[in-house]
Every structure is written in structure tokens, then in C-alpha cells.
Design a protein around this nucleic acid. Structure first.
Lengths: 335, 335
DNA sequence: TTGTATGCGTTATCAA
DNA sequence: TTGATAACGCATACAA
């Protein structure tokens, strides 16, 4: 390549690496190099440039569930929409590390290490092994986790602002006159869950409604737990609105809806329901009041954060705002 | 690392590279190396090993429409499902080249050159520039195009067997007694379209029904063209079944369905309809008789072909079979 | 403004 | 059974 252009390998590197601005290279030489590169279809080897301690404009994407699962419901597709757009905007290509989920031959104790091929790495899915992540982080390798995460320490993340979003939903309930509100959540103390719970309490407190742990109903098995009987007990105790945490399966939301109709009740006439998240794709009936996760924007924000890290800077605001979704499942308290 | 284990760099590579079986290494040495690696958390640098091995186990994916468009309808998602699975199975990671569609800064006259960064490259979307493709192919760079394609010469491709699929659909019609069948297609002579037309004719001929160009109705603007009047004219001329080519927009299929109901007719009572492809996602009413594109399998087949090229071999069968979809829009001819 | 020399961490070849 | 040593393709400090 260098020979064909009639220049040294250094010059090629300078021109193609964009360092031509800093070092000053004659337009003539530049033209020669670019011309030759084009004719040959020459592109610097990313592994080589990586090895020589430069960057290769590659961002890795590691997902600990199939990136394109057959079951679209749990897919990262919506995130990737934003990831791709922002990566393109920032001049990065994406490396999809495959098979990290399938537990195949490549999913070893060091699967994450493959990420080092790229300049930095995005990690999706909360099943990413903390020890492997820690190693990357400790080595100063740029990693951004999609979703709030406390471990390992020092890991950068980008997540949805569940606290604010939940607060807004509860605020809406209180503004409509509800005072006795209950939170139903599944028993899985991940940040996404505890954040919503915090927002729930904050929303009530901000409106001057006293709250406490007694308002939170944690259930391991929503189907057996959220029965018509339980529902009637709540109503009898004065509860007028129920807030449900969204989970992968939406089990609690489904169970509660079933319980309402099985009890011969109507939502929102007899009881108001709010969903802290998006309804499942197969949801029927009125749109649940709640909030939507801005998945594409989250993906984009993650890429921006990662780009900042790669460039040697610090990512800024890790929280992305959720959009309040006015629905049809909340009304004034009965009577 | 090597020093800490008290062995040479070579030995480390041998042990960690799994080549220990071929070369034979003392259990003692092996233990020392593994122990040291464990303590240090040492893992071979992928960039370095790739540089040395001259292969990087990366397959490029180039799409000339956004890979993750907001409009899911035209997305490559279903293909990527298969691509990811097969790539994982074959031990490849994927490089998604971004911005080739958006016409951004990176979508220049040489966007495709970036593909050389991988061991081979998959190209999706029929708008891939032929000249850039030719260059890659001429240079012996492994490229596989998803979808049949004749240009540039020598380009490997993997596509659906539209001929056989269309023949099967027409065969079903004839078997049910239809003799006067018409093909409606949009006016875009791409292989996917001409193949279906060929299958249409072959299906009729195979059943002993004479056919010819007069049976094919090409329309540039389905909405204005496929009117109730036209429909009645066909029926009056003895036509009992209409076969429609599927396109991106499904315009013809939609228009025809509208025409049927506007004419006060019933499908399949008064006329049978068949769709050479999948219905649009927003399709309502009875499932159209026709065939489905096995997108995931196509993606997988493309990866297999590419892997074969990368390994220096020749890809085998480029055609992937479509699945006949018995629907509810075909019945016996009226009267 | 451009070329020379060196090193990045690994694999592969050959010698011991 | 193991160890030197030479690529691999690039970036970078330094010399010209």
C-alpha cells in the first residue's frame, strides 16, 4: 500500500488516521495516499491498530440474552434502534458479540474479554457477570451498562429515571383525589424495582400523604396472590388505587386485571390501576396509565456515554427521563 | 505473565490456546501456567491474537436500509435472528456497519470498503451499489448478498426459491379447479418479482393449463388500477382466481381486497385470492393463502455460505425453500 | 513535510 | 517437551 502510493507506511497511517491535521501533510501526498487506498480498497486492520494502542472506531455490544431472540418480547431491538443511530452519528461501527447468552462454547468465564477488540463496550441485560465486568473496569476499559447497576464499583451505566417517573404517576393519582394507594411489586430487589418503590413513596410524601412499608405488597407468585379476595380486602380497607410494578412477564399486571374482572369490578370505576412501565404487547383493553421507557433514547444515551469514556472524558447525566402515559385506567376515587 | 509462571511466552500461548493436546505439554508446566493466569486474571489479548492469526472471526453486516429502522415493517430483524444464531454457531462475531443507509457522512462512494475489516461480509438490501460490490468480489473478498442478484458477476448470494413457491401456490389453485387465473404484480423487474412470475406460469403449465403474458397484469399504481370495475371485468371474462405478488408496501394486495369488498363481493366465495408472500403486519381478516419467506433460515443460510467462502470453500445451494401457507382466501371456483 | 526505527501481544516456525 | 525468534499491521517518538 505504502509502496503503491510512493510514500512511507508512516505517512499512510498519518493520512488515514486523520492525524493529518495535527502534523501537516502536503495536499499532494494526501491525495496520493487517499487515491491509492481507494484503488486498493485498503482499510487499516482494526486488530493491528488496536494493538498499536490506538482506536478502531468499534463499539462492542454484549447482551446476555440473545440479541435477536425469536421471542421478540424480550428483545433489545428498541434499544438497538437508538444505539445504531447514535453510533452512526458518532462515527462508530458496532460489534455484536454473539453467543454470550446461548451458553455455547464461547460463553466461558472470559466471554466478556472479547470486548477488548473494540474501543469500548456496551453491556445489556442484568445477567452480565460482575467479576468479568469488574476486570474490564479495573483495567480501564470503557464499559457502559444499560440499566442502573451498582456492582462492580466504578462501572458506568445509563438508566431510566424510574424514581421521577413513578413519582409522577403517583402524583397523578393523588391529584385526582386518591389517598389510600397500594404498590404491588414482585419480589426481586433489583435497582429498577427499588427505584420505582422509592418514587412511589416520594410521590405520596410530596403530596402530603403519609406512607410506609405497609403500603407495599411484595408477592413472589402474583397469580396465586392477587386474587379477587385480596382485592376486595383492599377495597374494604379503603384502598382506591393500586400501582403495579412492571416486570419482564407482566405477571402482576395480568393477575390484577384478571382479579378485577373476576371480582365483578370495573376499572377505573371501582378501582384505579396504574402500571409503572409499559403494558405487554398482547395487552388488551384500555391503555394503562403509567409511563413508557424511552428505549431508543436510552440506547442513544448509552452510546454517548461510551463515546465519552472512549475519548477519555467522563459521561454526564446517566438518567434518562421516562414519558408519562396518560391512560384510561385511572379515574377519581369511587364515591 | 510468562515470567511469573516461570515459563516461556510460547508455552503460555500453547497452554491457553488449547493447542496443548497437539503438542504435548507436561502436566506440571500446564498447572503452573493455568495457576499464574488464574491469579493474574490473565487472558490473551484478542487484538493481538487476531493480528497474529490473520483472521479475526468477524463477519460484517452491511444493510442499505437502516438496520434497525423505527418502522419495524421494513426491518431486517427477522433475517438477523438467523444471522446471529448461525454466526454464533460458527464462532463468528458480527460487525454492524452503521450509517450506510442514512446517507450520512460515512455513506460515501466507498462505504463498503469498511467491510474489509472483517473476514467477510453480508450485504442486505437491494440498493447496495454494484460497483463497490464488484470491487470487493474482484479482490476475492468474501461477500454474500442476501437476495438473488446477478450483478456484479461472481457475487455469491442466498435467496428464497420464489419459483418453486409460486408454482406451489398456483398448483393449489388449479387442484381446486381454477382454470382462469390472473397474476397481478407491480412494475419492478427485480429477480424476486420475475421469479414469482416464472413460477406462476410454470405452475399453470405443469397442470396442463395454457398460459401467457396476457395473464399477467402489471400495474404501476395499484390504488388507481385495481378498481371494482376492473375486478368485475375479470370475473365477467371468466377469471376465478387472482394471484398477487407481495411487495414492500403490499399496495396491490390491499387495493385488491378493498376492491373486492367495494364491489360487494366475497372472498373466497366469489373470487379466490392468493398472495405470493407474507401479508403485511396490519393485515386483518382471513389469512391469505400463499407462502412465507423463511427469513431467519435465509439469514442462517447466508452466514453458512459466507463462512464457507471465508474458509476458502464454495457455498452450496443458494436457494432456501419457502413454506406454503394454506389460508382462507382460496376456495373452489364459483358455481 | 516525510521517513526510520521500535514496540504492541500473540501465533507459528524451527531449533534445542 | 520447551524456548528463541520472526512475522502480523499499525502508531508514535524521533531523526532527517
Amino acid at each position: 500500500m505504502a509502496q503503491l502510493a510512493g510514500v512511507s507506511q508512516t505517512t499512510v497511517s498519518l493520512v488515514l488516521g486523520g492525524k493529518a491535521d495535527d502534523v501537516a501533510i502536503s495536499a499532494e501526498t494526501r491525495r496520493k495516499v487517499l487515491g491509492a487506498a481507494e484503488r486498493l480498497g485498503y482499510v487499516p486492520d482494526p486488530a493491528a491498530s488496536r494493538l498499536a494502542a490506538a482506536r478502531n472506531n468499534l463499539l462492542g455490544v454484549f447482551s446476555f440474552t440473545a440479541t435477536f431472540p425469536t421471542d421478540v418480547q424480550h428483545s433489545y431491538y428498541p434499544f438497538l434502534v437508538g444505539v445504531e443511530q447514535e453510533a452512526a452519528a458518532q462515527g462508530f461501527d458496532l460489534v455484536l458479540f454473539t453467543g454470550s447468552s446461548t451458553g455455547g462454547a464461547r460463553a466461558g468465564a472470559h466471554a466478556l474479554h472479547r470486548a477488548r477488540l473494540a474501543d469500548g463496550c456496551l453491556v445489556l441485560g442484568r445477567h452480565a457477570p460482575a467479576d468479568q465486568l469488574r476486570r474490564l473496569v479495573d483495567d480501564g476499559f470503557p464499559v457502559v451498562h444499560l440499566g442502573r447497576r451498582d456492582e462492580p464499583e466504578g462501572l458506568a451505566w445509563v438508566g431510566a429515571d424510574y424514581v421521577t417517573a413513578a413519582r409522577a404517576v403517583v402524583g397523578d393519582l393523588v391529584a385526582r383525589g386518591h389517598r389510600e394507594v397500594v404498590l404491588v411489586c414482585e419480589d426481586d430487589p433489583v435497582p429498577a424495582s427499588t427505584d420505582r418503590e422509592r418514587g412511589f413513596h416520594e410521590g405520596l410524601l410530596a403530596a402530603g400523604v403519609p406512607t410506609g412499608p405497609e403500603r407495599v405488597h411484595r408477592c413472589a407468585d402474583p397469580e396465586r396472590d392477587l386474587t379477587p379476595a385480596r382485592l376486595r380486602a383492599w377495597l374494604a380497607a379503603g384502598v382506591t388505587a393500586i400501582v403495579v410494578e412492571e416486570t419482564d412477564t407482566s405477571a402482576a399486571w395480568r393477575a390484577l386485571n384478571t382479579a378485577v374482572s373476576d371480582a365483578g369490578l370495573d376499572c377505573p370505576r371501582d378501582v384505579s390501576l396504574a402500571l409503572l412501565g409499559s403494558p405487554p404487547p398482547d395487552h388488551e383493553g384500555p391503555v394503562p396509565t403509567g409511563f413508557d421507557l424511552p428505549r431508543a433514547r436510552l440506547g442513544a444515551a448509552a452510546v454517548r456515554a461510551l463515546a465519552a469514556l472512549v475519548a477519555g472524558g467522563r459521561p454526564d447525566e446517566p438518567l434518562v427521563e421516562c414519558a408519562f402515559r396518560p391512560g384510561a385506567t385511572v379515574g377519581p376515587p369511587p364515591r
